[in-house]
């Protein structure tokens, strides 16, 4: 399933282009309007962490919803239901969304640090937070994408359903990034990391049970 997703994406490159260009455009707009010098020193950790995750979050939203909608649009969903088990479909789509988000973070976070002069004290804790955050965001987005693919007006509905569900995650990620910027100690980032990890875990487990119901409904 994952290989099929990658092959399909390499043919059209819709999600990669949407996520990459949205992220880059927003980053350029933020860097141009705010830049590294417009923020007071004491406000830097909080504002830079918040801006980073807002850019990542909305860039992710623009591309992650497509995984199931494209199957409905291309009328391939019925064939997929016959060809693969629900868990294989969900696992493949989740892995693809994780890969897409990881690629976005790999591309955007270093660029953001350079353009906004964001200094990170705890690089390893930040990488761990980005990895766990990537899984949590992709898991929620994949499940919501599966739900909205079966409803009318899926484009707008994805944002309506996914944004409130991801807000607690976003709050914890911003707090964790702020801590990683100011301290190299794992202990400071641990509460946020635990919260994000727990949310990722419960979302994955819930999705494993719920996806077959949504997929065959």
């Amino acid at each position: 399933m994952f290989a099929k997703e990658v092959r399909s994406e390499l043919r059209a490159r819709v999600a990669v282009n949407a996520i990459g260009l949205f992220g880059l455009t927003t980053l350029v707009a933020v860097a141009y309007q705010i830049g590294p010098y417009q923020i007071h020193e004491q406000d830097r950790p909080h504002l830079l962490a918040a801006l980073l995750w807002i850019i990542l979050f909305f860039a992710a939203l623009s591309g992650l919803q497509r995984v199931f909608v494209k199957e409905e649009d291309a009328h391939t969903a019925k064939t997929l239901r016959l060809a693969a088990s629900p868990l294989a479909v969900w696992g493949g789509k989740l892995a693809f969304n994780v890969a897409l988000l990881a690629a976005l973070e790999t591309f955007l976070v270093p660029l953001y640090c350079i353009l906004m002069r964001m200094m990170v004290q705890g690089i390893l804790p930040l990488i761990a937070l980005l990895a766990v955050g990537c899984l949590a965001m992709a898991a929620t987005a994949t499940m919501v994408a599966a739900i909205i693919a079966r409803a009318a007006g899926s484009g707008t509905l994805f944002a309506i359903l996914a944004v409130p569900l991801m807000l607690p995650l976003l709050v914890m990620l911003i707090q964790g990034t702020r801590m990683a910027m100011t301290s190299p100690a794992w202990g400071d980032i641990l509460p946020a990391l635990q919260g994000v990890g727990a949310l990722a875990g419960v979302t994955v487990v819930t999705s494993i049970y719920l996806f077959p119901v949504v997929w065959h409904d």
């Binding site: 499940m143 739900i147 569900l165 919260g195 949310l199 979302t203 819930t206 049970y209 719920l210 949504v214």
Partner: peptide
């Protein structure tokens, strides 16, 4: 009914994070 029930279950798991963690 099915989709709303699935969303309700997904929404519920975020509630402890909103009420206790954040």
């Amino acid at each position: 009914g099915g989709l709303a029930a699935a969303y309700a279950a997904l929404a519920f798991v975020t509630m402890p994070f909103l009420v206790f963690v954040v």
